[in-house]
Design a protein around this nucleic acid. Structure first.
Length: 422
RNA sequence: GUGGUUGUAGCUCAGUUGGUUAGAGCGCCUGGUUGUGGCCCAGGAGGUCGGGGGUUCAAAUCCCCUCAAUCACCCCA
């Protein structure tokens, strides 16, 4: 019903779906450390300037998608719309500025005030990595390899890796001029957004999807050829290393990406069957400026959207993870039996087996139905008769058989059957 | 932020040109078995028809507004 809805663009994740999330999170915690990356946690909000300066004032994210508010001290704070700026803000206090490499990954919610659509939420979740402090084509290539390793780990196949270079800050002006000159001639035929972008951010015109703009964009100058020889060499090396690693990619000359901090290598992984928002993950090399600092933090990283990874897994019909240990249900007939069962349930749990004991005065039939509903493999039944005899009835739900056991034997009875299952 | 589509039971959905007490399947509860689940049978609970206003003798149905979901634009993970 409508009144149980959370705010637009946010979702509740119920326990039934949590294993799917754990699979993504556990896999990240498994794969990234293999490359020397450690988990890092930064605040979910930052000073607004961290994002304004870090992502670029002209970006759409900063201009119209941030959740910004003033705290009681009058500080302007913003719910993080992405992960890199906060991580880099924290790392800037370390010796990354002296060329010492830091390898970190993070996991958590991000916030963007957009209109929700398929694969787009206002609170969404990312897993990302940052390699900060050093620059080398090898690092970029390994970062991409690590992303693909992660996707492989979580069973996502059939994705496409798109690759491009944004050049350095010094490379941009000549290329920008060429683009501005070229698009300037036909700007009247292009969409309103592009008209605006011509002066504000010409690069964004390159990935405009409007049909009338596409015709003009197709014949646009090849900006990469205008970049410096060093920049072109850097990109060629990244490609060459990827070739050697056996990683397939597509060069996407119009891949620009929406954050201003990118330089050199940029990449995106797309997947069919995600709808209009088809990017599973994206990233690249960056030079990120923090407020009050003249020197940028350099690094390379990526972020993947957990909701989109889930969508891809669903499109691939990946089987959900299974519970390894089947639960036990304790049927109790009468208050005395139920209290004894609570004690026994505690012992069973301490043996590592999930146990649920009935707490209400319900019929045998109702209690067994409940056991069936939670897919209990074993049921322990106790009533006055059993209490008098000093035993419990242990029932194997799959076999349909049952036997009488002293309470102290119950765990010993179950364990071998459980181990056999796993 | 702009547009399209959709809102009826916990879930998936019927509901005729406006017509009397709003239905089905699944799920849930109880019984058929004095203390034995799944299958079957019988019964039962559960609905401000998203919300508000309007038209009408009469609105789930028509009109307006609003909220929400969803998809697309846009943006990006």
């Amino acid at each position: 019903m409508s009144n149980s809805n959370p705010p637009p663009g946010t979702s509740d994740v119920f326990p039934e779906e949590i294993p799917l999330w754990h699979r993504l999170e556990d896999s990240a915690r498994e794969v990234f450390p293999l490359y020397g990356y450690g988990e890092m946690r930064t605040p979910e909000f930052e000073y607004t300037e961290v994002f304004e300066r870090g992502l670029g004032n002209e970006t759409e994210v900063v201009q119209k998608e941030m959740y910004t508010f003033k705290d009681r001290g009058g500080r302007s704070l913003t719910l993080r719309p992405e992960g890199t700026a906060g991580i880099v803000r924290a790392l800037s206090g370390t010796d990354v500025m002296n060329g010492i490499e830091k390898r970190v990954y993070y996991l958590g919610p991000m916030f963007r005030g957009e209109r929700p659509a398929a694969g787009r939420r206002r609170q969404f979740h990312q897993v990302g990595v940052e390699n900060a402090g050093r620059i080398a084509p090898e690092i970029d290539a390994e970062c991409i390899a690590m992303l693909l390793h992660y996707l492989e780990k979580i069973g996502i196949t059939g994705s496409t890796l798109l690759l491009n270079t944004r050049g350095t800050l010094e490379d941009r002006p000549p290329a920008e001029n060429a683009l501005r000159e070229y698009f300037g001639k036909d700007i009247e035929t292009m969409c309103d957004d592009c008209k605006d972008r011509l002066n504000r951010n010409v690069w964004r015109i390159l990935d405009c999807k409007q049909e009338q703009c596409q015709k003009v964009i197709e014949a646009a100058p090849d900006v990469v050829s205008l970049f410096s020889p060093e920049t072109q060499k850097f990109f060629a090396e990244v490609c060459e290393i990827l070739n050697r690693l056996g990683i397939k990619y597509e060069i996407a000359p119009r891949l620009v990406r929406g954050l201003d901090y990118y330089v050199h290598t940029v990449f995106e992984v797309t997947h069919p069957g995600l709808g209009a928002q088809n990017a599973l993950a994206g990233g690249g090399r960056y030079e990120l400026y923090l407020p009050g600092s003249k020197k940028p933090v350099i690094g390379v990283g990526f972020a993947a959207g957990l909701e989109r990874l889930l969508m891809a897994q669903e499109a691939l019909e990946l089987a959900p993870p299974e519970n390894l240990i089947p639960p036990v249900f304790l049927v109790g007939l009468g208050g005395n039996a139920r209290r004894l069962n609570m004690k026994l349930a505690g012992d069973i749990r301490r043996a590592g087996i999930p146990a649920m004991a009935e707490v209400e005065d319900k019929s045998m039939k109702a209690q067994l139905r409940a056991a069936n509903r939670i897919n209990a493999n074993f049921v322990l039944i106790r009533g006055d008769e059993e209490i008098d005899k000093g035993i419990v009835v242990a029932k194997d739900m799959n076999a349909g058989t049952q036997e009488e056991l002293p309470e102290s034997e119950v765990i010993k009875w179950m364990l071998p059957k459980i181990i056999k299952k796993c």
